[in-house]
Nucleic acid binder design. Structure first.
Lengths: 327, 327
DNA sequence: AAACGAGGTCACTAGGTCAC
DNA sequence: GTGACCTAGTGACCTCGTTT
């Protein structure tokens, strides 16, 4: 046990005082992160670099990358706790920005299982992708899955679970998260069809024996719904918390279910409060509309799953990445 | 605790408001120092004397002597922060002028250890040297070491460290600083051989059993390199910050290493920015050339160290000053 | 009762402003 | 140019509720 172990993983200058917001760090960096969330006084930094102590933006980025995560505890339906809600959203927004950045610019060395990813509670180690790195359908699916896993891993409710429960939660959630982010991206691009950032189709154009209508449902159904509702970024962020904190997934222990349902209540009330504040009297309707998106996510995942089974029966055995082995 | 304690150590007229730029002083003297650095409107004073309040030069000198020290915090690579860089250089230039003055005109009573010097964070107390004060090799080495220590002590990074880390940093740095200043002096005099200000040779002419070539290496190698590169005063100042903020020295705690590496990054980027501004497209080359000087400093120190060990084995036990006891 | 982590408080200092 | 005053960011320290 070197003294290295007890240094703050953000500033690496002071001794760590323990875990704060899920990360081993010092009291100063803890307070810095808290204040940044509540005051939101983080200007972007020109040269993205190692400028701890010099640049507040880079220090905050280090917090985000290290997985620092804030969850409101107070009753969010009380108006005076509005700050907690916006701090929570600010936190998620930066986690999501990091996810997008990693999706676009990074690769991952190796082929881990979800169990391995769930084991350690450190963020995944992405590396910068060379400009000429060849992307194909498989690579896009893989990096989308890994960045989704990395995003989900940072939620406080995930870190509260034991390794087994965490494993099951991630295993049965991350693919839905991938689908959901794909659809949000399509929506932001103003497109009705899901594609990867470079235009690659998410599924091959034709699969023998399946109607085109079925395939188009996979490509378009969720994106269409998201588009129709004009789901905002903030709503997406809060929904990602609500959806992927599901106490009903198989394999999760009784105590795990308790934790998840506690957190899901928090996230749900955050979303409700956001809707009420933003849409006034139509807030409750908006709230239920948003929740209904989960049905479409699920339906889409089931369709993809069916497509996948068909492919694996008739096609040649493909070199499937381990995170996509669900049984 | 007399009220004396809380008086401004610069003007001694107002109450001190706390520590500013590393020195206990009042708000007025703090602002004076800051403005002086940024506006650089300090004309020299005719009668060097006690004219605080009357003469801006003497007031500024008091700031420098008291150890007031400014370190840029902003990102120096942004052009708009050019003022910070030049303020930093202006500050260092005056600290260095003081060092030279003390080297030429002062003596130090006593024989402190580096640990003792590191303990208090006040400047060393030099006294004016009588005109007829007899200087010899030992005296020159001693005063060179002490003025180097006094110069290094004022850096902000030194004052950030705890007493133990400060001790180790000074102990393993000040002699290199001495060598470096010796070489700069030779270069300024247009000489290729290091000597003390009155012409005294830095090492005795002959040492039995050692080749003349080896001794000449000590006398000339670093001066030759400095001469070859035509290292300017500003470059010397910035290099002195980069070199003597070494996080890798033995004995320094983990947190101390963190502090030093943070500051070294600041100093390094200051030097790089200076090179880019001054040399345009050849700036990066100049930057690496300058950094390479450190190798020569180190090599020279090692040679001297070897020479010293030889002398101490065979010669009579000399009355070595305590700052030169490195183990 | 001891350890832990969230959150609050306060003294401190760099830097800015403005009347003189 | 000066200095009293103000502001914002910081980090050491404290409190309190929870967990073991």
């Amino acid at each position: 046990m070197s003294s290295e172990e007890s240094m703050c993983s953000i500033c690496n200058v002071r001794e760590s005082s323990g875990f704060s917001y899920g990360v081993l760090c010092c009291g100063a960096c803890k307070m810095f992160f808290r204040r940044a969330l509540f005051v939101k006084n983080i200007d972007t930094c020109r040269q993205k670099g190692e400028c701890i102590k010099k640049c507040r933006y880079c220090r905050f980025q280090k917090c985000i990358q290290a997985g620092m995560s804030y969850t409101p505890t107070e009753n969010l339906l009380e108006l005076k706790n509005n700050d907690s809600l916006s701090a929570f959203i600010f936190n998620l927004a930066h986690q999501d920005e990091l996810r997008k950045y990693q999706l676009m610019n990074c690769r991952y060395d190796g082929d881990p299982t979800v169990a391995e990813i769930a084991e350690h509670n450190t963020p995944l180690n992405f590396t910068k992708k060379p400009d000429d790195f060849p992307m194909n359908l498989g690579e896009w699916i893989f990096i989308t899955g890994l960045t989704s896993l990395n995003y989900l891993k940072k939620f406080n409710h995930v870190n509260m679970l034991n390794a087994s429960d965490r494993h099951f939660l991630l295993k049965y959630s991350f693919f839905d998260m991938s689908i959901f982010t794909d659809s949000m991206r399509a929506c932001e691009k103003g497109e009705g069809v899901i594609t990867f950032p470079d235009g690659t189709e998410v599924i091959r154009a034709e699969v023998p024996g399946l109607e085109q209508k079925f395939l188009n449902g996979i490509r378009c159904r969720l994106a269409a719904r998201v588009n129709e509702l004009k789901v905002t970024k903030e709503e997406f962020l809060l929904l990602s918390a609500v959806f992927f904190c599901n106490p009903g997934l198989p394999g999760i222990s009784e105590s795990g279910r308790g934790i998840l349902s506690t957190y899901q209540k928090i996230y749900t009330s955050a979303l409700l409060q956001y809707c009420l504040l933003t849409y006034q009297q139509t807030g409750p309707t908006r709230f239920t509309d948003l929740l209904s998106v989960l049905q479409v996510v699920t339906k889409t995942r089931q369709d993809i799953s069916y497509l996948f089974i068909l492919n694996s029966i008739r096609g040649p055995p493909s070199a499937l990445k381990k995170i996509f082995i669900f049984r």
